[in-house]
Structure formats: C-alpha cells, structure tokens
C-alpha cells in the first residue's frame, strides 16, 4: 500500500507521520508538497499536524485553499482512506470534507500530554483492529481542539455512527468529548490526538499503530486477491 503525507508550509508532524508509515507500519510512503495536483498513484492520504500557514486567519483556513486539496477531495470521493491528524483534522473541517469547526480549548491553554481515548466505533476502515469501547493512550498537542457543531449535525454524527473516538474525560471542552469523527461514507477520519506519535513502546505508547494497521488491512482485504 502506498501512502502520501501532504506537506504544507508550517506542517511539523509530517516526518513523524512518514516514520510511522515507513518504519513502524512497513508500507511505502512519500512526502508530497502542497502544490501537487495529482494523487492518483496513492492508496491512502495522510494530512499531518502542525501550523500550516502559521494558522493565519483560522487553523487550516489557508491550507484548505491550496492546490493539493482538490486532489485530496478527489481521493476522498473515490473512497480512498483520508486521515487528518490535528492540523490535518482542522484542514478537513475547513474544506468541508468533515462537518463542524474547531474553537480554542475551553481553558485557553495549549495542551500537550498523553490522554485516554475511547474507541466508540470500531467498524471503520481506521479502527477495525480495536475493540469497541477499548481505552487507548494517544498524545495530544493543540490549542484549538474544542470541537463544535450545531445540534442537528451532532445528532447526525451520532445516528450515522460517525464518532470514532471520544476523550475518556473532558480535555478541551469538545462537544460530547469528541476526539475524532469520520465522514458519512466512513473513508475520511479527522482526529486531534496524534496516533503517529504512539507507534512504539519507546515513545510511551504503541496504541496508535493499530489505526494504521487497520487501514492497511482494509486495503488488503479489498484490493489483494487471495491465492
């Protein structure tokens, strides 16, 4: 399976993402600059964390206008897995690939620590190797991770099982403790916590690795013919 890690000016978790896929997951991966207009050769798209365009105007607002985002939308429409982490999640929200928006953390502080998440939906291509309700430890590092949407959107997220991860306890003021959501089709996941920083016990946790392995398993099950 071949992944693209999209790099914007100001991305700073791109190399972590690259490392997670190449060295820990053992799959092919390229770093792809934001002015690329074709992602057809990739099977999965990863939008890393950081501060694209210095978070000017709003987090993710400028990045979502960049050339590569048209190709990311095309990949999402084609049903390819698209994962946005932290700033990548914010870019997916700004681009409308996922519903809602981010507000500043309730306590106005930049939060940088490992938190406990609950796997709410383990029937997605990103979470199938987790148990439903499993508690996992994944680091967060954000100032604007307070997820917000209107009541109607929240009801829809719940009805369609689009909430993939929640914080085990209130971390940043997010509505319903939402930490990660998918689109309706289930092939686009945005999450504030960083699974790519939790792929080896040396890093304090390897709980994020199963997320990447789930993506690969889904791809193999649907693309590789068994002998």
């Amino acid at each position: 399976m071949k992944f693209a890690v999209i790099v914007f000016p100001g991305s700073n978790c791109d190399v972590d993402m690259y490392h997670a896929v190449k060295d820990e997951l053992g799959e092919q991966v390229d770093l792809v600059w934001h002015d690329a207009d074709n992602l057809d050769q990739y099977d999965g798209i990863l939008l890393p964390g950081g501060f694209s365009y210095g978070d000017y105007l709003r987090s993710g607002a400028i990045a979502h206008m960049s050339k590569v985002m048209a190709a990311v939308k095309k990949a999402a429409e084609a049903g390819k897995p698209v994962l946005g982490v932290c700033n990548g999640f914010q870019i997916l929200l700004e681009s409308g690939l996922l519903p809602g928006a981010m507000l500043r953390n309730k306590n106005l502080k930049f939060l940088c620590r490992t938190v406990e998440l609950s796997v709410v939906n383990n029937e997605t291509m990103f979470t199938s190797l987790y148990e439903k309700g499993e508690k996992i430890n994944i680091p967060i590092a954000h100032g604007e991770g307070n997820y917000y949407c209107d009541e109607e959107t929240l009801a829809k997220l719940q009805a369609n099982n689009q909430i993939a991860f929640t914080y085990a306890s209130d971390v940043n003021g997010s509505l319903s403790d939402i930490a990660g959501i998918t689109n309706e089709k289930g092939n686009v996941l945005g999450m504030m916590p960083h699974p790519e920083r939790a792929v080896d016990n040396l890093l304090g946790s390897a709980d994020g690795l199963k997320l990447f392995q789930s993506i690969v398993k889904h791809w193999r099950d649907s693309h590789v013919v068994k002998a």
């Binding site: 105007l57 809602g100 928006a101 507000l103």
Partner: peptide
C-alpha cells in the same frame, strides 16, 4: 469562502 467560517 475564506474570511469567515459559517459554522461558527
């Protein structure tokens, strides 16, 4: 399109 985010 850009200057505001209509969600919030």
């Amino acid at each position: 399109k850009l200057l505001s985010n209509p969600v919030i």
